[in-house]
Write a protein that binds this DNA or RNA. Sequence first.
DNA 1: TAGATAAATGTTATATTATAACAAAATTAA
DNA 2: TTAATTTTGTTATAATATAACATTTATCTA
Lengths: 160, 160
Amino acid sequence: MLTNAKLVFNKNINQKHTEAAIKHAEYLCLQKQQKFTSLRRTVFEILWEDYQPLGAYEIKQRLSMRLGKKIDPPTVYRAIEFFVDLGLANKIESLNAYIGCPFPSSQRSYIFLICENCKNVAEVSTGSVDNSLALIMEKLKFKLRKQHIEVKGICSKCSP
Amino acid sequence: MLTNAKLVFNKNINQKHTEAAIKHAEYLCLQKQQKFTSLRRTVFEILWEDYQPLGAYEIKQRLSMRLGKKIDPPTVYRAIEFFVDLGLANKIESLNAYIGCPFPSSQRSYIFLICENCKNVAEVSTGSVDNSLALIMEKLKFKLRKQHIEVKGICSKCSP
DNA sequence: TAGATAAATGTTATATTATAACAAAATTAA
DNA sequence: TTAATTTTGTTATAATATAACATTTATCTA
């Protein structure tokens, strides 16, 4: 969990972050009277293990490996939904993929930067875009519940 | 086509807009040496006929009705891809749906406002969010190619 | 214009993503 | 410790999307 960071690359995520994320998830579940079951914990660990967007069926496969048994799609989708609802994971719509949320307690929203070359995804938490959006929503009297901002292009490492 | 408008609701789209959009599509195709074939024209008309996001299979069904014959998925997906590539249509990722682009010649990008109550989608073209985003991209040396901004909530008509 | 080339469309099959519906097990409450 | 609730298991299938190849149509070139 990276409460202060504004930018998150998967390269910078390590075991410590994962452990902190799990701790935070446990805490949040306690607080919201939700159960951080063994199955959910395993899915959560998978979401963080290399901190890249994973498709549901990729998660399914990894879960199956870890537990040594066949896992069916609903099992995976239910766990994902659980975390997305709690704000502990996000769906990247344009990839049909899921990723752990590195700023779970932030009020800010996220921008996903998707590199079309190396396929890496970075996540930015920013106030300025949020403010611009909020202003527009206010003008239009649109009650914002959730926003998805995904940008595609070439990351700094892939462009000379 | 609404070159100056900043906000587009489906209610405000009428036959004239559709005709203008078709004219513009014809022109752009000519310019880019692409063919605005009969099939593509029909798909384009469908995308504009009630100016709401349509799933590929909904388009398939309408196309089938219009042409009085069975249409297979690739036919639809190819036409959609053609228009998306030309910037004449957009995919709304969080809905797996497609919609005609009302600002085809604008350099700006679009924000889709999706009402979770009435399911209507409005489209906003705005500079301020773009500028904020551009600033962030510059800082991160990320070469932006395409952005998807989709917000979900309750529109003004649905909230008292 | 005839034949060659390229582009668009048709067709079949299948991959990928996601959910509905109901059963069994585990947890929590009464 | 039974009843109620929640979670997980299971089966089946829905919804979205693409690969691969065949045919047709349009365009180019000799």
